[in-house]
Amino acid sequence: MNDTASDEEERITLTHGTGGQATRDLVSETLTAGFEDAGDALVGLADFDDGAVLPVGDKKLVVTTDTHVVQPPFFPGGDIGRLAVSGTVNDLAVMGATEVRGLTSGVVVEANYPREKLERIADSMAEACREADAPVVSGDTKVMGNGELDGITINTAGVGVAEHVTPDSDLSPQDVIIVTDTIGEHGIALLAEREGIDFEADLESDVQPVNDLLAAVLEVGGEAVTAMKDPTRTGLAGALNEMARKSEVGIEVTDERVPVTGDVTGAGELLGLDPYQIANEGVAILGVEPTAAEPVLAALRDHPKGENAAAIGKAIDDHHGRVVLDTGIGNRYMREPSKEAVPRIC
């Protein structure tokens, strides 16, 4: 136990790791304050986007990283290996780099971890890599002492090449907002598994790489796809707010248009959790110019990963930086969660 004196020191809390405002504040005040951005970056660290964009020769290189600390590492529908590959592939893809040039894999494992589990995780990374056509090109393995780490963490960084960059900041009013799949499954499945709340339903994470799906989107939509974003830790609400804030538009969403499975809403009601504030991995949010909305939706629904895609609203030139939700009964703002229901979800 710390004494009172040391309590007065400012300390890092779990909230700093939830990906919302507290994380942004910590990062901008502490972790990147003294950093100089790359002079020629098209999208850099300060943009807080899903990845950075750098010119290399005549190409636009997208670079991103994520460390995966999910607890439990094995959960219904996936594991930390599948998550680690999907997370970074999707970060690249939502920046427009649906072709992955290379992933790196930094595994840190606790001494005494069963080798068989590590093998399962590696197999599932390999499978996700095949699914995403994404080679791991460089790796690193560290072992920490027993008790020094709770199991395993995996960092993946990725590089890809984008023809057309889709930052999260380029929405214009009237752009149609599309989600590519039902939301909330990943976060709810983890919460249920982690907290040992024995829902007897098959709550399964839908974690998956969606670069193939987004490649289909870009093929049809091209430059009319103005923005893409990965609604991960802070859920749909966090991602939409970030897009609205950075694009300096408002976003209007109709509650009943948002695809959510019955299980997710059921579990959400039971636990008092809002599916909009729950983490996803394997879902993307798109901003699409109006004329391209229908072709993009059609392309999505033609793809097995996009069957449940839906247009959920539009960007508007009002309520700048905010998301307005039409609940069907009244209107309210949809807020970014300021803390996360489950801290170690990705």
Partner: peptide, 29 residues
């Protein structure tokens, strides 16, 4: 309601699992 049904029908206020005539909308706009 099937688990994969991507609608919000369940949670918008009906009593779950019932047949049609006792699915009452307490959230009807």
């Amino acid at each position: 309601m099937s688990e994969g049904d991507p609608t919000r029908a369940g949670p918008t206020g009906s009593i779950p699992g019932g047949d049609g005539d006792d699915e009452l909308q307490f959230r009807d706009p």
